[in-house]
């Protein structure tokens, strides 16, 4: 019986046919290819994209500037008089060109003003276009903050 079964398996190329049956199942399965420019990818929540800064909540403490290993942040504090009432920075430069997306500045910020966004398309023709100041800095309150050490900032899924 065993030998007969083996013989039948041999002449019908059973293993090869089994393989073909397995591959044929994949034809109708959903594909893993991402259709990137047409369909935007859903990025993980912790994506370390381009830095966003909320100037309104920034207190010009320059912690981010000190923390940055690349030295690509430059914060100008307002004058002492102004600082007493209005702590927002006079000027805030980020050279996104050198940024490592390491998140050191995000960790260091005491107010959570600086944070990563989900933006990742930063290809440009002129490197100077990646130098942002207070006016051109992307500033989008809709983008949820994420900080590594402030776990309570992570929104709970509803």
């Amino acid at each position: 019986m065993n030998a007969a079964a083996r013989f039948i398996k041999m002449v019908t190329f059973w293993e090869l046919l089994k393989g073909m049956a397995i591959t044929s199942r994949f034809v109708a399965k959903p594909k893993v290819t991402e259709l990137y420019p047409d369909v935007r990818p859903v990025l993980p929540y912790r994506t370390k994209g381009r830095l966003h800064v909320e100037i309104e909540t920034c207190i010009s403490c320059r912690m981010c500037e000190k923390a940055c290993p690349e030295g690509c942040i430059k914060v100008f504090q307002p004058s002492k008089e102004v600082f007493k009432t209005d702590k927002r920075p006079v000027e805030f430069y980020i050279s996104q060109e050198h940024c490592l997306h390491c998140g050191m500045c995000v960790d260091a910020c005491p107010t959570g003003s600086i944070h990563h966004s989900q933006e990742f398309e930063m290809a440009i023709y002129n490197p100077d276009d990646l130098l942002f100041d207070k006016e051109t800095l992307p500033y989008d309150l809709d983008i949820k903050r994420f900080r590594w050490n402030f776990i309570e900032n992570v929104p709970v899924k509803k």
Binding site: T23, F26, V27, K29, P30, K31, V32, T33, L35
Partner: peptide, 10 residues
């Protein structure tokens, strides 16, 4: 195309 479909690609 077909080879890609067999391999879960497009």
């Amino acid at each position: 195309r077909l080879l890609a479909f067999f391999q879960s690609r497009l």
